[in-house]
Nucleic acid binder design. Structure first.
Lengths: 214, 214
DNA sequence: TTCAAGTTGCACGCACGTGTGCAAGTTAAG
DNA sequence: CTTAACTTGCACACGTGCGTGCAACTTGAA
């Protein structure tokens, strides 16, 4: 009854502006999680008014941004697996870190905001399951802790990652340092002693801290 | 030139209302960290207007609340010491937990808000130093990790506590469970294996998880 | 060149929240 | 009881942000 029927293909710059908005949102929301639409639009070289040509609301913009980011992480993690649960967990840690360190501030407000459930049970759901599975396997394995339910241990592991994220705000870490720290903190939460964790790190330095993951 | 000179002692209910406001603020801000003055005043049985008779601004109210809480924690922690750094750290964890678990939501927004620096370097500064000292002693001791700077380890320990705080929101923990979890997570960040951590817990259950701390 | 797709600026209305002034009320101290 | 201390409700100014309608403009597709 509405939709004035497209008589012509959409203009090419429209798509460009849309992604420009998403990019700008990523940057600005990272600078200030409460950045206004005005700020974001300006950073994208658009006016606040025209944002509504691309997204029905501010929330929709942010939701899409979060979904994109979550999907990116999920894809990266999904591409790598290892039979050893401890190493697998460490790999997951490294990969997530690589995708997330750029977006520290945003990450906090998304994971701790109204989008929380939506994102966590959405694209990031499988990631959590993967961690739980690793924790379970490591427990059966004899390497991981068996004194707590896997679900809880998984939360502690995730929490350890956030602790590193937080630390990286206070004293900026290099990429390599960040990776090491995430892995160490995660394995610590899993129940390894610091020597064991360091051992894993040393034995698989290539895949855990060097540039190209394989 | 101002201050219409007190010709009489302040009314007794004034002080009462002031603390009622602080109490209400604690409760409401814990329910919703962005609770409005109106909400808080109502919960205290006062009108928004009269809040300004006790505090110059909303921020002042919150700042005082945060300061009070921080001081409480600091006092509790300061009353207990142990020569063994590992046990000392565990004790600190237990005590902080006892004081903070009621105030989960508020704790987040205070520690992650504009008050952050003010509180952390204020009443809670000594707490951080204490943790750093324990971490260092444990390292010299041979029980704690030596692969990371004590400052960093201390942050990880604190981060582990926050992870537990977070977990306790998802699946409510009993007091005892909370205490155990904080201690375990903290010792894990310190570098102990989960068996060693459990060992500490078992050996000092009386002081670490039972009701009256000594 | 034509014309729709897209952008812009401005003006609204709306919802929230803070902080203040003031007159009228209530309550405890003396 | 008298009076100062305290509370209340209302009104206001102020600021910030969102979402929308509309007319005028620019730009790219055909």
């Amino acid at each position: 009854m509405s939709d004035p029927v497209r008589t012509r293909a959409p203009r090419s710059d429209a798509a460009k502006n849309r992604t420009a908005l998403l990019d700008a949102a990523r940057i600005e929301l990272n600078r200030d999680p409460d950045a206004s639409l005005d700020t974001i639009a300006a950073a994208a070289g658009l006016s606040r008014r025209s944002v509504y040509g691309h997204f029905p609301s501010r929330d929709a913009l942010i939701a899409e941004l979060a979904a994109l980011g979550a999907a990116r992480v999920a894809a990266a993690v999904d591409a790598i697996h290892d039979a050893d649960p401890v190493l697998d967990l460490a790999l997951v840690g490294r990969l997530v870190w690589d995708d997330v360190e750029h977006v520290r501030a945003m990450t906090w407000s998304v994971v701790r905001g109204p989008l929380r459930e939506q994102v966590l049970s959405g694209a990031l759901g499988p990631l959590h399951e993967r961690i739980v599975a690793d924790v379970e396997a490591a427990a059966r394995n004899g390497t991981g802790r068996t004194d707590l339910p896997p679900q809880v241990v998984a939360r502690l592991v995730e929490g350890a990652a956030f602790a590193v994220l937080d630390e990286s705000v206070r004293s900026p870490l290099g990429r390599a340092e960040g990776r090491r720290l995430v892995v160490l903190a995660g394995l610590g939460a899993l129940g390894l002693s610091w020597r064991e964790a360091q051992d894993v790190l040393a034995r698989h330095a290539a895949r855990l801290v060097e540039e190209a993951a394989r």
